[in-house]
Each structure stands twice: as structure tokens, then as C-alpha cells.
Measured scan of single mutants.
Amino acid sequence: DELEKRVKKIARKLNLSLDQVEEWLKRNNNDELVEAVKRLKKK
């Protein structure tokens, strides 16, 4: 979905793993995208 695409884009842009992106999003209080990261990690 759109949020998952955004997460992947962030990960690529910042050259981070999904775990690192998740931490980064949590620090930025971006719950919506944190949920998207969790969905991606399950895939």
C-alpha cells in the first residue's frame, strides 16, 4: 500500500534496515508509518 511504499522509500533514501527505520519513526512519533513497517516486516 501507499504507506508501505513510503517506508521502503525512506529506508532506501536513508540506507537503513526496516528495524532502523522503525526506531527512527518511533522517535518521530509517526505511528501510522510504524504500523506500515510492522506489516512489511511480516512479509
Rank of each mutant, 00 (worst) to 15 (best):
N15I: 03
E22P: 01
L18E: 03
N28I: 14
R6S: 07
L18C: 11
N15R: 13
N30R: 14
Q20F: 04
L16I: 07
V7E: 00
W24A: 01
R27H: 10
D19P: 04
N29R: 11
K26T: 10
R27W: 11
K8C: 15
E23W: 10
L18R: 02
D19E: 08
K26V: 10
R39W: 03
R6I: 15
L40G: 01
E23S: 08
D1G: 08
E22C: 15
K8E: 13
E4V: 08
V37E: 01
K38H: 06
N28M: 14
V34Y: 10
K8S: 09
V7K: 03
K43E: 06
D19Y: 06
S17I: 06
W24M: 08
A36E: 02
W24I: 07
K41G: 02
D19H: 07
R27S: 10
L18N: 01
K13D: 14
K38S: 04
L14F: 13
R27G: 08
N15C: 15
L33K: 01
R12P: 00
E23C: 15
K9W: 14
A11M: 15
R6C: 15
V34N: 04
E23F: 07
K8A: 14
K5M: 14
E35A: 12
E35Y: 02
L40E: 00
D1M: 10
E2A: 12
Q20I: 04
K38V: 07
N15L: 05
D19I: 05
L40K: 01
R39D: 02
L18D: 02
A36L: 07
I10E: 01
K26W: 08
D31Q: 14
L16D: 00
K26R: 13
E4M: 12
E35V: 05
W24V: 04
V21H: 00
L18W: 10
E2G: 07
L18V: 03
E22L: 14
E35M: 10
N28A: 12
N30T: 05
D31F: 14
L40R: 02
N29I: 07
L14K: 03
R6V: 14
R39L: 05
E2N: 08
K42H: 08
K26Y: 07
A36N: 01
K8L: 15
A36T: 05
N29A: 13
D1W: 08
K9E: 15
L40P: 00
I10L: 13
A11F: 06
I10Q: 01
N28H: 13
N15S: 09
A11Y: 03
W24Q: 00
K5H: 11
L14G: 02
N29M: 11
E32L: 11
K38T: 05
L3G: 06
E22N: 04
R12C: 15
N28K: 11
K8Y: 13
S17G: 06
I10Y: 04
W24C: 12
D1I: 13
R6N: 05
K43A: 08
D1Q: 10
L33R: 02
K41I: 10
V7Q: 01
Q20E: 14
K43H: 08
R27Y: 11
K13P: 00
L33T: 02
D1V: 09
S17M: 06
K38C: 13
L33E: 02
L25S: 03
S17F: 08
L3P: 04
L3T: 04
R6F: 14
L3C: 14
R6W: 15
R27L: 13
E22F: 12
E32F: 08
N15T: 04
E35G: 05
R6L: 15
D31S: 11
I10V: 03
D1F: 10
N28V: 11
K5T: 12
E4A: 07
E23L: 07
Q20L: 07
L25K: 01
K42N: 10
L18F: 07
L3W: 10
K13F: 14
A11V: 06
Q20G: 07
L14S: 02
R27N: 11
E4Q: 05
K5V: 12
D1H: 11
D1Y: 10
K5N: 12
R12K: 12
W24E: 01
Q20H: 03
R39G: 04
K41V: 04
R39H: 04
L25M: 06
D31V: 13
K9S: 13
K41W: 06
N29W: 09
L3R: 06
L25T: 00
N15M: 10
D19M: 06
A11H: 02
E35K: 09
S17Y: 07
D1L: 13
K42W: 04
L33V: 02
L33G: 02
A11N: 00
K9Q: 14
D31A: 13
E35N: 08
V21K: 00
Q20T: 03
K5W: 14
N29G: 15
K42T: 09
D31I: 14
S17E: 04
L40M: 09
D31C: 15
K38G: 04
L3E: 08
E23H: 07
L18H: 01
D19W: 07
K5D: 13
V37Q: 02
L25V: 03
L3Q: 11
N29S: 10
V34G: 03
S17N: 10
K13T: 12
A11G: 02
Q20D: 08
K42A: 13
K13N: 10
S17P: 05
D31G: 08
V7I: 11
N30S: 10
N28W: 14
N28S: 11
R27V: 09
L25F: 14
E23P: 00
L25W: 03
K41T: 03
V7H: 02
D31H: 14
V37G: 01
V34I: 12
N30W: 15
E32H: 09
E23M: 09
E4Y: 08
Q20V: 04
R6P: 00
K9F: 13
R27I: 11
K41P: 01
L14I: 02
R12H: 09
I10G: 00
S17L: 07
L33Q: 02
R6G: 02
E32W: 11
K13L: 15
L33I: 04
L3I: 06
L16H: 02
E35H: 05
V34M: 12
K13R: 14
L40D: 01
V7G: 01
K13Q: 13
D1R: 11
V37R: 02
E22T: 04
E35Q: 09
A11R: 06
R6K: 11
N28Y: 13
L16A: 04
K26C: 13
L25P: 00
L25Q: 00
D1T: 10
K13I: 15
L16G: 01
K43D: 04
L25Y: 07
N15Y: 07
W24K: 00
K42I: 08
E32M: 09
E32D: 12
K9P: 01
K38P: 01
V21W: 03
E23R: 09
L14A: 02
K8D: 06
I10T: 01
K43T: 05
V7M: 05
E22W: 12
W24Y: 13
L16Y: 08
V37A: 09
A11T: 04
K38N: 06
L3A: 13
E2P: 10
V34W: 11
L18I: 06
K8V: 14
K13C: 15
V34H: 05
L18K: 02
N30G: 08
E35S: 06
L25R: 00
E4T: 06
N15W: 08
N30Q: 15
K42Y: 06
K5S: 12
A36I: 09
Q20P: 00
E22H: 08
V21P: 00
K42G: 07
N28E: 08
E4R: 07
L14N: 03
E22A: 07
K8F: 11
R6Y: 14
K9A: 15
L33D: 01
W24H: 03
K26L: 11
I10M: 08
V7Y: 03
L14H: 08
K41Y: 05
E4N: 04
E4F: 07
E32S: 09
R12E: 09
R12D: 08
E4G: 04
N28T: 13
L33W: 05
E22G: 05
E35P: 03
V7L: 09
L16R: 03
V21G: 00
D31T: 14
D1A: 12
K8G: 07
E32Y: 09
K38L: 05
E4P: 03
D19F: 05
V37I: 11
K41L: 12
V7N: 01
V21L: 15
K9Y: 14
L18Y: 08
N30L: 15
N30K: 14
D1E: 12
E23V: 07
K26P: 00
D31L: 14
R39K: 07
V37C: 15
N15K: 12
V34P: 02
L16M: 15
V7F: 04
V7T: 01
D31K: 12
K5E: 15
R27A: 13
W24L: 11
L40I: 08
V21T: 04
R39A: 09
E4D: 03
R12L: 10
K43V: 06
K43F: 11
N28D: 05
W24G: 00
A36G: 02
K26Q: 10
K41D: 01
E32A: 12
L3M: 12
N29E: 09
L16E: 01
K9I: 14
K43M: 08
N29K: 12
V21S: 00
N29D: 08
